[in-house]
Nucleic acid binder design. Structure first.
Lengths: 220, 220
DNA sequence: TGGTTCCGATACTTGACAGTACCGTATATA
DNA sequence: TATATACGGTACTGTCAAGTATCGGAACCA
């Protein structure tokens, strides 16, 4: 995204070792985290470099030594957002699609996606001015969740729980989209009750699993 | 929202007529329209009072005579957005829910909601800082569309086309939510193909109308 | 026609923030 | 220990926009 393309962030680079201290850039992670925090709290336009520097207990000059501008810092911060987004092996496997989807709803995941929503909201004004950032933001923030849904649904198709004739692509985006909308625009909490209502009232019915799936689950 | 609460915008107010010109405030609508235009194009933070004044061919002082600050101007502009949002009598009535929903998709409505999305995007940073604005923005921009869906669905329930056991409230928000998400975050066009896919792939199935509804419609 | 008020334009003040320059210090290498 | 480098801190500059002040002209009324 910036000049760190070839290296991972914080990597040692360059030519032969010189005298004195190495180019460690060891404070990068703290600075990027601070940038995300401030971005989430105040939005891109409200955020100042001084805020980020103060939050990271760093000098403003340090930030400018590493990133050429505020915009590049933010882009880098979003791009480097740690992708804790559950690899396939750590996904729930309860045997039913409903069970899997419900199992995804945990306090931790709700909290994390709340944070991501804040970051997304903070980026909106940037995205409006530079639409090419939309892809990056989407890839880092909401797409991972849609991908999980897609995977779980495909697994349900494979084991014959549902037919494969549905529009899986669109249906996978229902909960990310509606949760984003609820959080960003409505400013209402995306809590367990909302997500369960979404699964039982929209996602499963759209896949051809009527109220039966829920009732069966409740009875057992 | 501002000091014009008791009056409708542009209303003549006050005491006995004085000498000279009346307090007409006759330029208000142009100014508010200009504000919405600039807001949609550049976002709240990027917008300047000079831009709005220039667009409305008005003096900057004129704006400040009427609204105490940039924020109040924008709030007023959004609140006064003309609600052309189709009264019940002008809604389609094709006899089937699918027909009604599809009939809502017209080039004009797509264009208009594209504009509203731009405005909403422009307001996001304001909303983040003043969450109480979320309600106002929602009420002026997306809620009307959800209300139309709700009405059409309820009508379908009344004539027995679908059962009333669905989560109509949530389902009415599917297309507004997902269209908003697609436009604001994904920056992809909300075109007819997308909306039809949403209706046939999500909304109708979620209401218990399987692919049959579409196939029947296509066959006839 | 003369008085009154609103309007458009423009010049001005003020404050905030991006980005730069610089200094003293801490730290790692030799 | 000596040296070079990165860092934290702070002072500085330049720009830009919010909000204010003022003025001449136009529209309206008596």
């Amino acid at each position: 995204m910036t000049q760190l393309d070839p290296e991972t962030p914080g990597a040692v680079a360059d030519e032969a070792p010189r005298l004195g201290r190495k180019r460690d850039h060891t404070r990068d992670p703290e600075i990027l985290d601070a940038a995300l925090e401030v971005l989430a709290e105040t939005g891109y336009d409200g955020m100042t470099i001084d805020m980020v520097a103060a939050r990271a207990k760093a000098g403003k000059a340090t930030l400018y030594r590493r990133w050429p501008s505020k915009a590049e810092l933010v882009i880098d911060a979003v791009a480097c957002m740690k992708k804790v987004d559950l690899d396939p092996s750590s996904l729930p496997d309860t045997g039913t699609l409903r069970g899997d989807l419900i199992a995804l709803i945990r306090p931790h995941s709700i909290e994390e996606s709340e944070r991501k929503m804040q970051i997304m909201a903070g980026m909106m004004s940037m995205i409006a001015r530079a639409p090419e950032l939309a892809d990056a933001a989407n890839a880092a923030i909401v797409e991972p969740r849609a991908a999980v849904n897609r995977l779980l649904i495909n697994r349900a198709v494979e084991r014959g729980e549902i037919s494969g004739e549905c529009d899986i692509e669109t249906i996978s985006m229902i909960s990310p989209s509606m949760a984003t909308y609820r959080s960003l625009v409505l400013k209402k909490p995306v809590d367990r009750a909302f997500l369960v209502a979404l699964i039982d009232g929209v996602v499963l019915p759209a896949l051809g699993l009527g109220a039966g799936a829920r009732d069966k689950a409740l009875a057992s």
